[in-house]
Amino acid sequence: MLPKKLFMLFCVLCLCVSISHTARGGGRGKTGRRGSRLYNSRMPVIIQHRNLASKNYYENKDGAKIIKASHFELEYMLGRKITFFCMAQGLPRPEITWFKDGIELLYHKFFQVHEWPMGNDTMKSKMEIDPTTQKDAGYYECQANNKYAIDSRGFRTDYVMVTY
């Protein structure tokens, strides 16, 4: 039987190898750069709770959780529309905020967010950019939060050039 510290080190190394493999394009469901499809947009995370308070925060049954979201990768044609979708659940109903490359997105005439409250515990949100430019390529994220927890989902996007 392995000592506990050695076992934890082994788990961390396995996770690092898995992340490295996925970042290089390996993993299940990947069919190449163009036309790729990933089946799971969430990287597994091992959370070791240090105390009861942190466990209650991360595993709170009323905490904000994203229950549906767009696919992880999207390639768009310049001048066309980008659309991302997020649905979150929690009590109180979560608020959804959109980010690009880590910076909160603010409204402008080419960027719109539509939200639909559903019942007292669910929020649907759709983010659209129309028309798109080269500057719209990047990493987008929807973040759902309420007073108990925060959950987020990320989406990578890049443009394609069509030549005739």
Rank of each mutant, 00 (worst) to 15 (best):
M1W: 01
P3M: 10
P3V: 06
K4V: 10
K4N: 13
L6T: 00
M8V: 07
L13H: 06
C16L: 12
V17F: 03
S18Q: 00
S20G: 13
H21L: 05
A23N: 06
G25P: 02
G26Y: 02
G27K: 02
R28T: 13
R33W: 04
R33K: 06
R33H: 04
G35N: 05
G35F: 01
R37W: 11
Y39F: 09
N40L: 02
S41R: 09
S41M: 09
R42C: 07
M43N: 08
M43C: 11
P44E: 00
I46M: 14
H49W: 10
R50N: 09
L52R: 14
L52F: 13
K55P: 07
N56M: 09
N56E: 10
Y57M: 14
Y58V: 04
Y58E: 04
E59M: 07
E59L: 08
K61Q: 14
G63A: 00
G63L: 05
I67Y: 07
S70E: 00
F72H: 13
F72C: 12
E75D: 14
Y76Q: 03
M77Q: 07
G79I: 00
R80Q: 03
K81H: 08
T83Q: 06
F84V: 06
C86F: 06
G90R: 03
P92Y: 01
P92L: 02
R93S: 12
I96L: 15
I96F: 11
T97A: 11
T97D: 10
T97N: 08
W98T: 02
W98M: 01
D101H: 06
I103A: 15
I103D: 14
Y107G: 10
Y107K: 13
F110M: 13
F111M: 12
F111A: 13
V113Q: 09
H114A: 15
M118G: 12
M118C: 12
T122K: 08
T122V: 07
T122D: 00
S125Y: 06
S125I: 04
E128M: 06
D130R: 10
D130H: 12
P131Q: 03
T132R: 05
T133R: 08
K135G: 15
A137Y: 03
G138V: 02
Y139S: 09
Y140K: 03
E141Y: 09
E141G: 10
E141H: 08
C142Q: 00
C142E: 00
Q143N: 11
A144P: 05
N145I: 04
N145Y: 07
K147P: 10
A149L: 14
R153P: 05
G154D: 10
F155C: 09
F155V: 09
T157F: 03
D158W: 09
D158N: 15
V160K: 04
M161V: 15
V162C: 01
V162S: 01
T163G: 12
